[in-house]
Design a protein around this nucleic acid. Structure first.
Lengths: 188, 188
DNA sequence: CGGGAATAGTTGACACATCATCCAGGTTCG
DNA sequence: CGAACCTGGATGATGTGTCAACTATTCCCG
């Protein structure tokens, strides 16, 4: 594939070194368990999923609590059809509603409802505490920095060059980073 | 708003510090993109999913290429019903087959087929190279070590105390010492 | 003005994960 | 022996993610 071009002409596979192998396995396992745990916790004690949460965060971060569908897709790095389906499900549950856009006949807004607002307000604190307990209570401040550096470097590689364009329906706009993720809120 | 922190509150939420927040955001984004990228790459150029790959790896790691279903669940940290469904789909595609277990009438084995073996042999090299390029080419040897340490610490917390038992159908019955810890998982 | 092309969004089919439930084969113990 | 219970595993419903069409608007350009 496009990401497969390699400096070596031949098909010499570069297998992972033992050290890398260990790190990779540890990372993969941790990441899987952490995701599972955070998802389960959120759905158990707030009755919304991580995906719902991410969408709701985007909405609450916007002054008038309404965002265009494709704007959501871009800031969440989701495909447009994923957003579309997900919003449909959330609408069914009353967390958001759709409104058509006057200035552009084909567009539509996703709007936060009262139910949606109270859902995220209920979910945020325990989610933040969970992240704190499961992640940041376990590692040193130096490791926090390292985690960020590592993540940023890898992420950068994923969004540059040949690898970037693969995401359909959501161009790597660039300036990126109005990242959805919750976490703490700087005391407003 | 939900982010306001009231000093008098009984349950004071520990929001993330700015540094932690940045690290968390970076991690979440990276992890999401990396997963998506690896999955897409594998299914595009080897026609199997990461989940298939994980199962196949377990099978090839076993001398006679046959493993009990629950054994699979335990080593992959999957729920038993997930394994069951997944194996059913893989069987339909000819990657594995089931065989009943003589010594225990209720058990069954999952057995690697020739098709399954050639699938994983085809998938492994390009997957390894992808991991190399996307991850290890981006970070320093010191960071490889850090990544492993961080992952191990967080993982350890996830499999300890009350957090561990939550996984249904796959009790860490053996080995794993379950040391009760205060602080608990969710605040309940 | 008219006819592509791009854009915004939806839809349907399918793969996947989770949950609750069910079931058959073992185990324990009176 | 047999009833209660435990275990290994399958199944169906439901929610979620992806891909490939598809519709409807708007844009561009002659």
């Amino acid at each position: 594939m496009m990401c497969q071009l390699f400096p070596y002409a031949e098909r010499v596979t570069r297998w992972l070194e033992p050290e890398q192998q260990r790190a990779w396995r540890a990372y993969v396992r941790m990441q899987g368990e952490l995701n599972a745990h955070l998802s389960r916790q959120m759905s158990v004690d707030s009755d919304i999923s991580m995906a719902d949460f991410a969408v709701l965060v985007q909405l609450t971060d916007t002054p008038d609590e309404r965002v265009r569908v494709l704007e959501l897709a871009r800031s969440l790095h989701w495909e447009k059809s994923r957003i579309s389906h997900h919003v449909a499900r959330m609408e069914k549950r009353g967390l958001v509603r759709r409104e058509s856009c006057g200035s552009d006949g084909r567009g539509s807004f996703v709007v936060l409802t009262d139910l949606g607002r109270s859902a995220i307000e209920a979910a945020a604190p325990s989610h933040a505490e969970m992240v704190q307990k499961l992640v940041f209570d376990q590692i040193t401040p130096a490791e926090v920095g390292a985690l960020r550096e590592i993540s940023e470097k890898i992420f950068a590689r994923l969004t540059t060059g040949e690898c970037a364009a693969v995401v359909a329906g959501c161009d790597a706009d660039d300036a990126v980073e109005v990242v959805p993720q919750e976490g703490g809120c700087p005391e407003a």
